[in-house]
Design a protein around this nucleic acid. Sequence first.
DNA 1: CAGAGGCGAAAGTAGCATTTTCAGAAGCGG
DNA 2: CCGCTTCTGAAAATGCTACTTTCGCCTCTG
Lengths: 231, 231
Amino acid sequence: MRPVSEDVAIGPSSRREQAVSRTVDPARERAELKVQAFLDAARELMSTSDGKDFTLQMVVEHSGHSLRSFYQHFAGKHELLLAVFEESVQAAADQLITELEDVDDPFGRLRVFVVRYHRLCLSGTARYAEKPLQSRAMAQFAHQLLIYNPSEASRAFRPVISILHGLLDDAARAGAIRGDLDDEVAGVILQAIMFNAFVPAVAGTPPIEDTERAATRLWELLFHGLASSAP
Amino acid sequence: MRPVSEDVAIGPSSRREQAVSRTVDPARERAELKVQAFLDAARELMSTSDGKDFTLQMVVEHSGHSLRSFYQHFAGKHELLLAVFEESVQAAADQLITELEDVDDPFGRLRVFVVRYHRLCLSGTARYAEKPLQSRAMAQFAHQLLIYNPSEASRAFRPVISILHGLLDDAARAGAIRGDLDDEVAGVILQAIMFNAFVPAVAGTPPIEDTERAATRLWELLFHGLASSAP
DNA sequence: CAGAGGCGAAAGTAGCATTTTCAGAAGCGG
DNA sequence: CCGCTTCTGAAAATGCTACTTTCGCCTCTG
C-alpha cells in the first residue's frame, strides 16, 4: 500500500495498522478509510492555522466523522499524534532514499542526507511536497515523545536512523569519515539536524532566512568540528 | 541578593523581579517571600515525583499560600515556570563561572564548559547541588518556550550563551579553534549539549549510564567532527 | 423481515487553569 | 480602642479539553 524500502519498513504493527486492525475483516475497508480521514484531518490542522494546538473536536469536524468513531479507532489523542508522526518520519525517510539515489560516493551521500533532512525538518509542509515534520505542533509532540515515551520515539525514528546508520557505515568503510564512531553518533547527528531550528532562539540570533545556508553550515560544522583547520 | 557575575547579570527586569514589583514598597518584603515560596514549591515539585506534570493546586499547597495570592504575583502558570527556568539557567551559569575559575587555557576552558554544562543538564538536581535544569517537566517547558516563545527563550538562555560566546571568542583568538565560526555556533553547541539526553531515544540505543563518558564523546565529536583524523 | 452491531449526535465526567466572591485579618489614622 | 480601607485565604464558579456514555437510527445479514 505504501512504498517502503525494505531496509526501512516499519512492519505490520505500526500505530496506523494497529488502529485499523481493531476491526474485523469485512468492514475493514471502511475502517481504513476512516482512520486515514482522521490522520489527514490531523495533519491538515497541524500544517495550517500556524501549527497552534488543535483540539480533538476540530479533528473530528474536519474528518467528517464523529468523536465516537474516533475513539473506536484510536485509544486517544496520543495515538493519533503518534500515528501522524510515524507517517511523517516514514515519508521523510522515503523522500531521502529517493534523493540519495542520484549520489554515489559515500561522502556525498552523507552530506546530502544531512542537508536534505535538515530541509525536510525545517520546511513546514511547504517545500518538499510529501509529509515532513509538520509545524510546531509536531515538534512539540516529538519532544513530548522523546521525554515521556523514549521507546515509542525510538520506534518512530527508526526509518531515518536506519538510513543514517547505513550511510555512516559506508562512509567509515570508505575512509570518508572516522572509523571510531559508535552507534550513538547517528542520534547526535539526527538530533542536531532536527533541532537546528531552535538554534536562533537559543543563541539569540535572528531567525533563519536562508535554509540552505544554515544546512550547509551545520554540515560543515558536523564534518570538520571546531578544531582549527591547519594545526 | 544573588551573586551574579557582571557579564551575565540578568538585569532588574527578570521575571522574578517583575513578579515581585507588582506590589508597592512597604509590603514588598512579604511579597518577595511569597514569590520565593512559590518558586521553591514549583522547583521542588519538578524535581520530585519523577518530574511528571504538576498542577497549580499542588504548587499552592506546597507553598503554604493561597491560589489567590499566586495569581496576585504571577500572571499564570507560564510565568511561574519561566521564572523557575530563568533561575535555573542563571544558577547553571553561576556554577559554570565558578568551575571555570580553575582553568586558564582557552581550549581547556571551552572543553570544561561543554563537559560541565552537559553534566548540569543531565543530572536532575542530584549531583551538582545548585539548581540545574530540573527533570522532565523543565525540559518540556524549555521546549515549549523554544517553540512558542523564542524571544523569551533567548532571554532565558542569555547567561549561558554569553559565557559560551566569550569562551569561543577567546579560543578562536588563541587559535585553539577555527576563527571562521559565526554567532550561531554557540547555539548549535548549547543545543547539542542540552538535548544530548535525547540521543539514546533518537538513536534507539540504551539509556546513558556513564554521564562523564557521554560528555567526553560529545566534546570529542564537537571538536574533531566526523572527518577522518589523518586525511 | 427481524435482530445485531456499527455509528452519528449529543449529553455527561473529570482534570486543570484561571476568575470571582466573600468574609475575616491586618494595618492605620483618629 | 474604633472605623475604615486594603490585603488575603478558603472555596465556589467558569471555561476549556480529553475522554466516556447513552440513545436511537440505519444498515447489514441471516
